[in-house]
């Protein structure tokens, strides 16, 4: 009786502004003849405007999870739901880990790519591409080809390309892992500010605990293979944030220690194979 009463009352409240829901997602891979379990009943919910960072040891399936969310791979079982966009286009945009800026397109063409696929009006494409190029600090490089840009600038193009389609959800797969530390810190600050300003819901995958704490509202720590949710840790720092100041906060050290403890446990244990 009590159960029946509380269920309908809490459920709508919890679901009101949920943008992403993942429930019991299972994914296997064939490695030669052996079947490996990459994800084992992973689940979480993400409310609008929240910044979720997924961390875990290498090979824990965090990138696989993101690829399933992006529709690039299919889960074997379980449910993945993302609130559909009003215009029928994908409600998300993804920023990739590697070199993902098209070498055969100029900066402007790259940033306009998603808009062109959406058959946006020509004038609007120009305007929005120019806006986002300025926003990521690439004004003056509109006609440059990617081979003329540094690694940091290329990743800026990639970020602008994702923001330009104005997605509800941003999926980021270790976007800064190939950059040097200074450039990483600068881009962390810019992405943090942009996401805050644009009210984006973000799922950000990284192996860097530091990055997880400085950027996230919540940090989801995953276990070693088969990937499961080990713990969901709320990050108390308010937004907007200064990614350098956050590191000086005494709570930063505590959080780092806590998350490192969880991950170290997993790394030492190694993958558990069935």
């Amino acid at each position: 009786m009590h159960e029946a009463l509380s269920e309908p009352r809490t459920a709508p409240v919890a679901q009101r502004d949920v943008v992403v829901r993942v429930r019991d997602v299972v994914k296997h891979f064939m490695h030669g003849r052996r079947q490996l379990c990459a994800l084992d009943r992973v689940g979480f919910e993400l409310r609008e405007g929240r910044f979720l960072v997924i961390v875990g040891p290498s090979g824990c399936g965090k990138t696989t999870l993101l690829r399933i969310l992006a529709g690039l791979e299919r889960q074997d079982s379980g449910e993945v739901w993302m609130r559909p966009s009003r215009d029928g286009h994908p409600p998300f945009a993804m920023v990739f880990q590697e070199q993902s800026v098209f070498p055969w397109m100029t900066v402007r063409e790259n940033v306009a790519y998603g808009l062109r696929l959406r058959r946006v009006r020509g004038r609007d494409i120009e305007e929005r591409a120019a806006h986002w190029i300025r926003k990521v600090g690439l004004a003056g490089f509109e006609r440059a080809y990617p081979h003329q840009l540094s690694g940091g600038m290329k990743q800026r193009v990639s970020i602008a390309r994702a923001f330009a389609v104005d997605p509800d959800v941003l999926l980021m797969d270790e976007p800064f892992s190939a950059l040097d530390e200074q450039m990483r810190t600068i881009l962390q600050q810019e992405v943090s500010t942009l996401c805050e300003e644009q009210q984006k819901t973000v799922i950000f995958v990284t192996h860097s605990i530091d990055e997880a704490i400085t950027l996230g509202d919540e940090v989801l720590v995953m276990t070693h293979r088969p990937g499961q949710v080990k713990r969901l840790i709320p990050i108390p720092f308010p937004r907007p944030r200064d990614v350098v100041e956050v590191r000086a906060d005494p709570r930063y050290g505590e959080l780092y220690e806590e998350i490192w403890g969880l991950i170290a446990e997993e790394v030492r244990r190694g993958p558990r194979e069935a």
């Binding site: 992006a70 529709g71 998300f92 945009a93 990739f96 098209f102 790519y113 696929l117 959406r118 999926l171």
Partner: peptide, 8 residues
């Protein structure tokens, strides 16, 4: 992958 995620 990039093309697909943009709905190509």
């Amino acid at each position: 992958d990039v093309a697909k995620t943009f709905g190509a």
